[in-house]
């Protein structure tokens, strides 16, 4: 397993794309945080310290690239190897497919955690500075942790999609699925109620977004997130149920049936 993790580390860090994605994730996250903070500051100039803290947290966790980068990292863990024919070399070096799968999961989660922590930390510093909330501890820890957990969920989703589908199909599933298909589907089923909540809240990406939900409804209008959400734990649990199903299917296809 240690060898497999070493392989994954060298594989990741010896391509230019990895370093570009790392830099872009952090930079875009900081820029988003700054832009959203400015928008909030302009729209609601009179805020209490508590509201400013929550707003700063929201601003710091809205970069779409953090989640997308985690998903891409997951997809590329197998997708790049399949695309360029290096998976065969990896399996020759580590014929235990389950060990290779586990190493890819561990390394993807470690990198995602590092990326998300670094970009969120820098973003929250920027948003707190813009919104005049000097105390970082006023940021909502549940949302910050939720962002970290959600990014890791996207990374796992990417691994599953990357094993089940060709690389382009997997990217399309995450990008089009989250940004196009699910919002449209959400509008269609919004009026249907399940256990007193809109059915739209049970869709995978919506359920996952509960992890970075916020209490102040006024903020929702500012960041254009007015759709219904499940409570954080329920939504997060449901999102990870979807992730688990996809991962199990991909493990069966890529590991169990292949050997």
């Amino acid at each position: 397993m240690r060898d497999a993790i070493h392989y994954e580390w060298v594989r990741l860090t010896t391509t230019r794309g990895f370093h570009v994605l790392t830099a872009a994730t952090i930079l875009v996250s900081v820029l988003f945080s700054w832009a959203i903070s400015l928008m909030i500051a302009n729209m609601a100039p009179e805020m209490t310290a508590q509201a400013a803290g929550e707003a700063a947290t929201v601003a710091a966790t809205r970069s779409p690239l953090v989640l997308l980068a985690a998903g891409l990292l997951g997809i590329f863990s197998f997708g790049q190897e399949k695309r360029y024919g290096t998976l065969c070399l990896a399996l020759l070096a580590m014929p235990q497919r389950s060990a290779l799968f586990a190493a890819k999961v561990v390394m993807t989660l470690l990198v995602t955690t590092t990326w998300t922590t670094a970009s969120t930390l820098m973003s929250v510093i920027v948003s707190n500075a813009v919104l005049g909330s000097s105390n970082l501890l006023e940021s909502d820890p549940a949302v910050l942790v939720g962002c970290l957990v959600l990014a890791n969920g996207w990374a796992l989703l990417g691994i599953g999609a990357g094993l089940l589908l060709p690389r382009t199909g997997a990217v399309a599933l995450l990008v089009a699925g989250s940004a196009l298909v699910e919002p449209l589907l959400g509008q269609l089923v919004e009026t249907i109620e399940i256990w007193g909540t809109s059915a739209a809240a049970f869709l995978p990406f919506r359920a996952g977004s509960s992890l970075i939900g916020f209490a102040d409804p006024a903020l929702g209008a500012i960041v254009a997130e007015t759709f219904p959400r499940l409570p954080a734990l329920a939504g997060g649990g449901l999102f990870f149920l979807y992730v688990a199903v996809l991962l199990a299917a991909s493990y069966r296809k890529g590991v169990v049936k292949a050997q």
Partner: peptide
């Protein structure tokens, strides 16, 4: 080559 060899030390 470094990548391929990484799994074998």
């Amino acid at each position: 080559l470094r990548m391929i060899g990484a799994a074998s030390g």
